[in-house]
């Protein structure tokens, strides 16, 4: 996470130097289609989201009904990913679990988007003591590894989907705040912002009309990346037994069952992990592609 964070800092710098407005380049549908990584990632993400939506209403088998005669069955045409200890179809449980996992990730991104943007804009716009204190707080919070901090919050709230969401908001907010502050600082002294000040516009009006639109592309990239973390972290916390509790299916709760029955039913952890990996890869690809679009000179890809 740290690494991505610093890469995005340089993204902010590069964008600020390259564009006269100091803001990032807009993300358009055409640009996404033209970028191979963004397109591949976007399609993968779309498939995962589609499966989650279908899984919320229909699955090949009921994800909760026991079928003792067919327990621990290996993958077959009847059960694509095999069955678990109670004979439940794992593929159906993965489909049904996608909803909770993606909702947790969405909630985590939405919450940290709001709090992080607020903190970042306040820190970036009001120079002086407010900024100094907030910057220190943000840096310190980022010194605590995200998963460790999230586990701390879940300890207090108890294991559930809502506590995982809250815990993740408490982790990602600081990442958002940091990058938003950097973006705001990059644009805050530009001539058009000065002009708005000259026109006697209030600080909040300037933030809403001039600052936010210019940092929006960076925010979108950051949100996409955070969405990938959200999926991964929900799964990780679930794997530790601190997330959504079985029998309710989520990718995290399936992973803890996978760990328990790793030797009897290896297909369970393999399938559940693969689904998480594919979803995270898709969203990461999309995020990387979007980063290229926002800053065409970004490293690694077009060397």
């Amino acid at each position: 996470m740290n690494l991505i964070m610093r890469r995005q800092d340089s993204l902010v710098d590069a964008v600020a130097k390259a564009r006269p407005s100091g803001g990032a380049k807009a993300i358009t549908l055409r640009a996404i289609v033209a970028n191979r990584r963004a397109l591949t990632g976007g399609l993968l993400t779309a498939i995962v989201v589609a499966i989650a939506i279908v899984g919320a209403f229909w699955t090949p088998y009921d994800p909760l009904t026991f079928d003792a005669e067919h327990n621990f069955a290996g993958p077959s045409w009847d059960h694509l990913a095999g069955t678990d200890i109670y004979g439940r179809d794992i593929f159906s449980r993965l489909m049904a679990g996608a909803k909770v996992s993606l909702l947790v990730a969405t909630g985590a991104v939405a919450g940290s988007f709001i709090f992080g943007t607020a903190l970042g804009v306040i820190s970036g716009m009001f120079k002086g003591a407010v900024d100094a204190v907030l910057t220190r707080v943000i840096d310190l919070m980022l010194a605590i590894p995200g998963l460790v901090l999230a586990v701390g919050v879940v300890t207090l709230l108890g294991p559930s989907a809502v506590s995982v969401t809250i815990a993740l908001i408490g982790v990602y907010t600081w990442q958002f705040a940091r990058i938003i502050r950097a973006s705001v600082v990059a644009v805050r002294d530009r001539p058009y912002v000065e002009a708005a000040r000259g026109l006697n516009m209030g600080t909040w009006a300037i933030i809403v009309r001039d600052i936010l639109p210019n940092v929006m592309p960076v925010l979108i990239v950051q949100s996409t990346t955070a969405f990938a973390w959200g999926i991964l972290d929900e799964a990780s916390i679930g794997f530790l037994g601190l997330g959504v509790q079985p029998p309710a299916p989520s990718w995290g709760s399936l992973l803890i069952e996978g760990r328990q029955y790793m030797y009897q039913a290896p297909w369970l952890p393999i399938a559940a992990g693969a689904v998480v990996a594919i979803a995270v890869l898709g969203v990461n690809l999309l995020g990387d592609g979007l980063r290229d679009i926002v800053d065409p000179r970004s490293d690694g890809v077009k060397s």
Partner: peptide, 11 residues
């Protein structure tokens, strides 16, 4: 970056 540690470990 996309491969979860728990999955890799399990494999």
């Amino acid at each position: 970056l996309s491969t979860p540690a728990f999955w890799l470990g399990t494999l």
